[in-house]
Design a binder for these strands. Structure first.
Lengths: 234, 234
DNA sequence: CGACCCCTTGAGATACCTCAAACTAAGTGG
DNA sequence: CCACTTAGTTTGAGGTATCTCAAGGGGTCG
């Protein structure tokens, strides 16, 4: 498919204790002593767009924490097209099903270069045995996935194409906390919103003509948050 | 709204040990001794269509196991309309977020008369502390929710209206294990599939004219599974 | 400079939505 | 027991949004 598949970059064993985003991540609740339970290496791996963290159907051997970048969870349809069912951002966890010994249910592919921590399944299981807090954290993560899945359905797969695009933009800006918004390929946008590539392109182009979006760089836009909220609401 | 709201029927305290669907339910892995940890009453409650198990935003005080019937999880949109994000069938669990002490994220309403077991939040938590198997079961349930949410998006919110209806019918027949299919109101169908009531009605009517569906009673149909599979695939 | 990829734009076909009316079935009250 | 109401389903007709197919830019990279 893609001949420009890039080699996975390995950055070395992670130092969870000093992790800059630990308060966001799966290990946020761990105490100093808990780290003793980690008996297998946790690798820091950088993935580039086009190379998957894992593929649908692969045996689930590890969980990934996303530290930087953006990762899409993809499911392929009967006709070969893809539907993106979730987006993982820094602090999110990919492949939780591995903890249950199940095969991966999606293919996870970075949309932007993404730095991840690869945590072997057994490490999570052993930690979970030892610390109740880890259990709570895992359940919290699962619930977060459910919540995002529901939000995806109600806000990105409901209403007209313009409203969907507007909601996606707001979501990417943390509901308008910032004006800047990094976009991605129109095909991926379409796969998220359940519309065709052309429709996604048309809507973005229209927003730009109307001054709601101002291009600041390659796929980087300055957004009129208020206007977007108006369109998203309708 | 509904003046014919029916009183919740209480059937008495549940006997989990003898439960006929225990192998399906949340307590499937419990041992005889584990039942000693149950210190609060688990009630059997029958809900009728129109009376909710719980409402979105209510504090999550209990988890429900569905024993019979069919329950919809609803989220309301800005314009007041509803979107059904999941269906619970016998053996499924509603309101898992209560275990985490969170508010309910949906409104749960039976589509058909449904017998449920109401399990107080503290009972689940206490059981989880005592038995690791309960932990595993909870995580399994959460993962099941995620899986259903993803399936809902990819199979009921993707493709044309005819394909969506066909997939919904197959889903209700356990992917074609039985030919019989109990349907519900067209408005609910629309809310599941992300189409209008009229479109849902038109598709069902068309299927009936084409002989794919044969009415056997009020909202009870005999289905041509093969034909549906063909339509669902396209 | 040419090849390639992706985004954009166009024009026609189509599916779905909207609004509105007719029909059905079940419940209500005279 | 029958008109009358009410809620839900079905059907129609017209408008509109999205899809499909196709062609034309604008970068980037060899």
């Amino acid at each position: 498919m893609r001949d420009k598949a890039i080699e996975d970059a390995w950055r070395g064993q992670a130092e969870c204790r000093k992790c800059g985003i630990r308060e966001l991540a799966l290990f946020s609740d761990l105490q100093e002593t808990d780290f003793g339970h980690i008996h297998l290496p946790i690798d820091e791996i950088q993935f580039e767009p086009g190379s998957a963290l894992y593929h649908v159907g692969d045996p689930g051997v590890a969980v990934f924490t996303v530290r930087t970048g953006l990762v899409k969870l993809v499911r392929y349809l009967a006709d070969g097209s893809q539907r993106i069912v979730r987006l993982l951002r820094p602090g999110d966890t990919a492949g939780l099903e591995a903890v249950l010994g199940q095969d991966y249910e999606h293919t996870a592919i970075p949309l932007r270069s993404a730095l991840t921590c690869r945590i072997p399944r057994e490490v999570v299981n052993r930690l979970a045995e030892g610390t109740p807090r880890m259990h709570a954290q895992l359940m919290q993560r699962w619930q977060q996935n459910v919540r995002q899945a529901d939000a995806w359905l109600t806000s990105l797969s409901t209403g007209g194409a313009k409203a969907r695009v507007a909601r996606l933009l707001l979501l990417l800006m943390d509901d308008g906390a910032t004006r800047e918004c990094a976009l991605f390929g129109r095909e991926d946008m379409g796969a998220m919103l359940g519309v065709t590539t052309e429709t996604a392109s048309r809507v973005v182009a229209e927003f730009r003509r109307e001054g709601i979006l101002a291009e600041k760089g390659p796929n980087l836009y300055d957004c009129d948050v208020e206007a977007l909220r108006l369109i998203a609401g309708a």
